[in-house]
Design a binder for these strands. Structure first.
Length: 479
DNA sequence: ATGTTC
């Protein structure tokens, strides 16, 4: 497949065959070969065949192979022109996302307490496959409220405060959610999993702000060198998984019903304006809201654990949600295409929104700099806070990368190192790790991920997310 | 990612 270099950081897949638009991959010479080896570029071309897609089928610098769509894939469709919605373009973990909490603690204040803090987080936040029981079971009318109100429900139950909602994408509630579109089985799976981390790449992490790239934006975001931050990465757990699974079946039928020809069955979809498309959107939004409630509760549990461990008052800890950004979702947004404003369905799968200061969706407190973009790397290397730009709005429907991106499969990662060896190595790097499962530790080895510094540098150079600060991990809780 | 194949 031909890849034509357009700029330093853009490679284009020309429109051929049944592609409706060209593909574009944001990468550099070092990241591109791995993306090709993964055949993620072929998935970009496949996505370009979806009915109603506009502009480009895009891949972010951390792109790799995924179910149907690449992870790191972005695609916008126009519902008015038969545009579709595809569960494969959202992912199994609906509204998997990241939130970052700043504190007034400095590294020197807690240098000797990191192990105690990690231990406290480990005990207060259930983690691992099938983890449950963080809070009382939530069912019936309460679960309906979670699905339709999102993070606000958690705040109303006493987890965090209303101020958190202002610093959450969509205020922690995607409009159009309908609990009735979520199967009973999905609901049952969700009733005891609110406030739990899950497994895989999900984590709760303590980090220290290390490098500032943009001191002005850093200051607006409350980031300062030596400051301690809390990062939480989790999603919609078994409930979101079940919603995806249920609707892939629906969409396989719908694709046939609407005579949509697809190069890959995993791209199964339905027009947004069809009953199936509307129902999936309503269920996806409900799962997204569950994920926001989940992260809101996890954050609250984590902050409480830190306060208790340090014997600090809320005021002394000074915890404040910088932002919560999702990276597995489809959203209706206004975008300008060829000079015309259109309401598009933007699929971001393993990609974050990255809106500039000019967009109304950005919290008023950040309206001078832009939307925070949270880019966690692997547990031993670092994470980035970036900021959205006008360029990302123009070139990637306001999207940026979501992490380092996987380099090795989980199986390959497990074979490369023993868990104890890896834990020691991380300790030597200054990272205390506590994990429910040793298997997860090796699967999540820094060696299993691409270099987040390079990914963030490419995103910055490509102009889709300017780096604000780099964060070094000091303590991590894993599933 | 996922009660890691209801």
């Amino acid at each position: 497949m031909e890849l034509r270099q357009v700029t330093d950081t853009i490679w284009e897949i020309p429109r051929t065959g049944s592609m409706r638009v060209p593909g574009r991959i944001i990468a550099d010479e070092k990241l591109l070969p791995k993306i090709r080896e993964d055949k993620a570029h072929e998935q970009v071309a496949n996505v370009a065949c979806l009915p109603g897609i506009v502009g480009y089928s895009l891949a972010m610098p951390d792109a790799h192979w995924g179910y149907g769509f690449p992870i790191g894939g972005v695609a916008a469709t126009d519902p008015e022109e038969g545009g579709v919605i595809s569960p494969g373009g959202v992912g199994y973990d609906i509204n998997c996302g990241v939130r970052l909490v700043t504190t007034t603690l400095r590294y020197e204040d807690i240098r000797d307490r990191v192990r105690d803090l990690v231990n406290a987080l480990y005990h207060e936040i259930p983690a691992g496959v099938g983890s449950s029981g963080a809070i009382q079971k939530v069912r019936g009318a309460d679960l309906k409220a979670v699905l339709e109100k999102g993070a606000r429900w958690a705040v109303e139950q006493g987890f965090g405060s209303g101020a958190d909602l202002e610093h959450t994408e969509e205020q922690g509630c995607l409009a159009g959610a309908d609990a009735a579109a979520v199967s009973e089985r999905a609901k049952t799976r969700g009733e005891d999993q609110l406030g739990t981390l899950g497994s895989g790449n999900h984590f709760a992490e303590l980090g220290v702000v290390e490098t500032l790239f943009d001191p002005v934006a850093a200051n607006v975001f409350g980031l300062y060198p030596g400051g301690i931050v809390l990062i939480i990465h989790s999603g919609s757990r078994g409930l979101g998984y079940q919603v995806c699974d249920d609707y892939i079946q629906t969409m396989l039928r719908a694709s046939a019903k609407y005579k949509i020809t697809l190069p890959d069955k995993q791209l199964c979809c339905a027009p947004l304006n069809s009953p199936e498309g509307k129902q999936y959107f309503a269920a996806m939004a409900a799962a997204a809201n569950y994920a926001w409630a989940n992260r809101q509760i996890i954050m609250s549990l984590a902050i409480e654990a830190i306060q208790k461990t340090l014997g600090a008052s809320p005021r002394e800890l000074g915890a404040r949600l910088l932002y919560d950004v999702c990276h597995n979702i489809a959203k209706l947004e206004e975008h300008e295409v060829n000079g015309i404003k259109r309401r598009l369905c933007v699929h971001r799968k393993g990609a974050t929104r990255a809106f500039p200061a000019s967009r109304m969706e950005v919290p008023t407190s950040y309206r001078t700099v832009g939307q925070p973009v949270l880019v966690p790397g692997d547990m031993g290397t670092g994470s980035y806070v970036c900021v959205g730009t006008e360029q990302s709005l123009r070139e990637t429907f306001g999207s940026c990368c979501h992490g380092a991106g996987r380099l090795l499969s989980r199986t390959a990662a497990r074979k490369s190192q023993s868990p104890n060896e890896l834990l020691q190595e991380l300790e030597a790097r200054g990272v205390v790790v506590m994990a429910r499962s040793k298997k997860t530790v090796t699967e999540e080895s820094p060696d299993a991920y691409k270099d987040v510094d390079r990914v963030a540098e490419v995103a910055d150079r490509a102009g889709i997310g300017k780096r604000v600060a780099r964060i070094r991990p000091i303590g991590v809780v894993k599933g």
